[in-house]
Every structure is written in structure tokens, then in C-alpha cells.
């Protein structure tokens, strides 16, 4: 392992951890603009995190170690997931440690811990949130895998680095199958990140919340870690989307010279992705909880259609 690789990996982790709140701020700002509001500015999430981190840690009575460990596990899982996805460069030492399936597994690990922590106190809202999270999770997982299968079949491997290399090598080509996969991926990403129309990140409405019900009992630094992890998850998801569907411009070479350009390109893609997400969230209304399986079912169907179309037309 050369020093070059270590620098890349460290840079990547620093980027994911450091820039994730910025992306969250950008999305909020876009939503504010779309709703004709001024918005709180791009840096608002940092201020919130900083404020939470400074507070005294308070833990509910009767909480076990599962409850206390979960914020750290969530944070670490998302940071590791961010370390694996090729964002600026496909040459990452950790990229060989996990492919897309393992990435989905890492998300599942975080989800299971979040659900267990929510059940730890035995509050009704907590277990309701746990149940709903697991519901969305087990429905989203097959859809996500089907989405990932199409690029995996095109490139012959489930490794994200190889997918990026294969797709980027052929130049700009329209893959009809990838269009389907992209549509399905957006739907899955919305559901997995607790965004509209599956969950509303802005409210704590008792009877409809999913993600917020999970971290009701957290406060101070623990809450900061969880919120940070959620921002990183969204960041990583958009990163996966970029790697799969817009891989052009991700640096392939060995040197560090190409990184600044790749970084700027990636920032642009992220900005576009975030704005798109804000647009979707502005246009859609929240679905009833029991329409969510239908929503994810359609995502699954789209992904499968992509797979079939790929088989039919050969690309």
C-alpha cells in the first residue's frame, strides 16, 4: 500500500464526514427556495451539530448499552460506507473490502442497531419507529439489489470500483436498462433515507414519523452523531447514484493530480442531485404508510424491467 492510496482514502473519509452536513444544508436551502422562503443558509446543519455536540450527554433511565452504543455504530457504519464508494477516484484501498452487496449489508447493520436502540427503552413510539423502519428496510432491500444487478451484469462484477471503470471507459452511452435502474434507485434512495414521499424529514408528527421516531430519546452529542450519520447516509446514497449512473469524470489514474478536477465535478454532480431531491420532495406529498409497500414494489418492478430490457436489447 503506497502513501498515495492512504492519502486518497483519508481524503475520501474526510470528504464524506465533513461535507455531508453541507449537502443536507444545500437540500434544505433548495427546498426553501422552491417554497419561496429565504432559508437558513448552507451552514445551518453545522451550527445545529455543533450546538448538540456541546450539550451535556443525557441518557434515559433504563437504557442499556445497546442504546448508548448505537450512535457510534451508526456513525462508524456510514463513514465506512462512505469510504468504499468511489466518489472522486475509483482507486481506494477500502473499495476492495466490500462490494455493493456488502454496502447494502452495512446499511442493514446500521438499520438493525437503530431499530434495536429504539426498542431499548420500551416506549410505544420507539417500537413503532423500529417496526416501520424494518418494514421499509426489508421492502427496499430486494429493490436495491435488483437495481444494483443491472450495472453488475453490464460490468460483470458487483464491485463498485469495477462498475465505475467499466461504465466510464465506454464513454457516454445511453443504456435503456440503466434508465430503469436509475428511476428505481431514486425511489429506493428516497425510502431508505426517510425522505418524502415515504417519510417527512421536517416533522415529528407522532403518527406518521418513521426515522424521527427512532431517535426520539436521543439528545446532545448522541443525537448529533445520529443526525450526522443520517446526513452521511444521504451523501453516500447520492454518491452511489453518481457512481452507477454518472461515472464520467471519476479519476481512474494513479496520480493525485487528477483529484481536484474530479472533486469539482463530483461537487457539481452532488449539487445537481441534491437540487433534484429537493424538487422531488417539493412536488410530492407523503404517502400513507401502507402505500409504501406499493411504492417500493414499483421500484422493484422498474429494476426488474431494467434487467429484462438489458437481456433483450443486449445493453
Amino acid at each position: 500500500m503506497t502513501i498515495d492510496l492512504v492519502i486518497r482514502q483519508t481524503l475520501q473519509i474526510a470528504l464524506v464526514v465533513g461535507a455531508a452536513p453541507l449537502l443536507a444544508g444545500w437540500i434544505r436551502q433548495c427546498r426553501a427556495w422552491l417554497a419561496n422562503r429565504v432559508g437558513a443558509g448552507l451552514l445551518q446543519p453545522y451550527r445545529e451539530l455543533f450546538k448538540l455536540l456541546r450539550k451535556e450527554p443525557v441518557v434515559a433511565c433504563g437504557a442499556s448499552w445497546v442504546f448508548i452504543a448505537t450512535p457510534y455504530i451508526a456513525f462508524a457504519t456510514m463513514a465506512v460506507a462512505g469510504a468504499i464508494v468511489p466518489m472522486m477516484t475509483s482507486r481506494l484501498p477500502l473499495a476492495g473490502a466490500a462490494d455493493v452487496v456488502a454496502l447494502a449489508g452495512l446499511f442493514a447493520l446500521a438499520r438493525i442497531f437503530a431499530a434495536l436502540a429504539a426498542m431499548d427503552l420500551g416506549t410505544p413510539f420507539g417500537s413503532m419507529g423500529a417496526r416501520r423502519t424494518m418494514l421499509v428496510g426489508f421492502l427496499a432491500e430486494p429493490a436495491l439489489l435488483m437495481v444494483l444487478f443491472t450495472p453488475a451484469l453490464i460490468s460483470g462484477s458487483t464491485s463498485l470500483a469495477i462498475i465505475v471503470r467499466q461504465l466510464a471507459r465506454h464513454g457516454f452511452i445511453l443504456y435503456p436498462s440503466m434508465a430503469f435502474a436509475a428511476a428505481a434507485f431514486v425511489m429506493v434512495a428516497l425510502a431508505e433515507n426517510a425522505r418524502l414521499p415515504v417519510d417527512n424529514p421536517e416533522t415529528h408528527l407522532e403518527l406518521t414519523m418513521i426515522h424521527e421516531a427512532l431517535n426520539l430519546e436521543y439528545s446532545g452529542p448522541h443525537l448529533a452523531l445520529i443526525e450526522w450519520a443520517a446526513a452521511m447516509k444521504l451523501f453516500v446514497y447520492i454518491g452511489i447514484g453518481v457512481a452507477l449512473f454518472l461515472p464520467w469524470g471519476i479519476a481512474q489514474g494513479r496520480g493525485l493530480a487528477t483529484l481536484p478536477v474530479a472533486c469539482a465535478l463530483f461537487a457539481m454532480k452532488l449539487a445537481v442531485g441534491g437540487a433534484g431531491l429537493a424538487l422531488i420532495e417539493t412536488l410530492l406529498a407523503k404517502l400513507r404508510l401502507f402505500r409504501v409497500p406499493e411504492f417500493l414494489g414499483i421500484a422493484f418492478l422498474l429494476a426488474v424491467l431494467g434487467l429484462l430490457v438489458r437481456y433483450l436489447v443486449g445493453h
Partner: peptide, 21 residues
Amino acid sequence: MTHPTRIIDLLAALFLLVAFA
């Protein structure tokens, strides 16, 4: 494979998508 053919393939896929929708 030429670009127009690819676009037609994409449109065909969209056609199917609309049928499903």
C-alpha cells in the same frame, strides 16, 4: 452500435414503462 439505435432502444424501454404505468 450507433446513437440513433440506442435512442430507439431507450424509447422502446420508455414505451414499456408507460405501458406498466
